[in-house]
Amino acid sequence: MLEITKAGNHGILLPQLGIGLDYSGSKADHVFVSHGHADHIPWKVDAMVYATPPTKKFMELRGVKYEVQVLPFGETIETEAARITFYPAGHILGSAMTFVESEYGNLLYTGDYRTPPSPATEGFELPDTPIDSFITEATFSLPVYKWQGYDELKAEILNFARSALEEELHPRLSGLQSRKGTGDHASAERSWNIPIQIHGAGFKLCSVYDEEGIDLGNYESYDRDTCEGKILICPSSAISNGFASNVSRKRIAYCSGWAAMESRRSQLTVDKLIPISDHLDFFELIDLCEKLKPEMTYITHTPNPDVVKHYLDERNLASRFL
């Protein structure tokens, strides 16, 4: 049986194989990085590190100094103890699920993922083989988290921005974390050619999308002196830090999976909640587990695994919190 260990607050360790998954530490010989968000990048590592080409670019932009080996989707490398392949995870550009095959059985680690995939990604793909161990994030671990389709959400964002501009208010899309770039949210506004300004932390990441041939539309970096009359995209934390504070007539939409909770409206003092996420929703998670029927599902990256486990128990799917 394959031994799986949660490595403190950062990453997963497969000690029999000398493999780490989004792992910071000294107990792995090979570390595989699922995607380029800061909470999954190893910062203290003494191992060979592998990532997809876009993830490597994101890591370098975020300040990683160690060498990163490129492992494209669908290509397999062999270590002394295992075979490892990346599959598209549909979360952000370059995001990968890690499939590990060994004499102890196989394992699929999702990292953060989205199915159906986020539009500005390489898609979502599963290995064509039965899964023994399945390690899945469960960020949105309650039934209240159920998403509409992307076309509906895109229309909601467009309508929000258009109505604000018609009333001579400035639309601000907060909660689109700067770490994500802008993905489909920018391309949505491109259809009616209104310029977008993006918070600086996210703007620098957009270059990776451009290099990979993904059109993010008519966007530029946020400039306090020229931001009026433009759609502003920023993380929610930026609002309390003075982002565009010179713009008095504004309308703010909180765009995040967490917007499914009505309490966020008063907590964040926003005008509209739009539940859009680059993670899968609760029911998509349960459906995928039922489709895969792994021997064991390990639930991680979640505020509460109990409800997920309850739903899996009802389907006779073995699971545990990692």
Rank of each mutant, 00 (worst) to 15 (best):
A253K: 01
A38V: 14
P305Q: 11
D313V: 15
K146H: 11
R251N: 10
R224V: 15
S178N: 10
N246I: 04
I157H: 01
I231M: 10
F134M: 03
G105H: 02
S221P: 01
D151M: 08
G217P: 04
A120T: 02
G123P: 07
L268T: 05
K44F: 15
S26W: 15
D223A: 12
S237N: 12
A51Y: 10
K180P: 00
I157P: 01
A201G: 12
S178G: 08
D151T: 09
G257I: 11
Y311H: 08
L232K: 10
L158K: 09
G25I: 12
G123K: 04
G8N: 15
H30Q: 14
R179A: 05
I196L: 03
H91E: 13
V64Q: 13
P303D: 04
L153N: 09
I84T: 07
S237R: 14
P117T: 01
E168N: 06
V31P: 11
P54L: 09
L71D: 06
R249V: 08
L21G: 04
V307P: 08
L13V: 09
S277A: 07
E295Q: 10
V270S: 09
A260G: 12
D215H: 00
F140S: 04
S277Y: 07
A161N: 00
S221F: 02
V100C: 01
K44W: 15
T269F: 11
N193F: 03
F283D: 02
S118A: 14
Y222K: 02
E262M: 10
F86N: 04
S263V: 15
Y145C: 05
L205H: 06
Q148R: 11
D306W: 13
A155N: 07
D281Y: 02
K309E: 15
E78A: 15
D223V: 07
R190Y: 02
L165E: 03
G94V: 06
V308F: 04
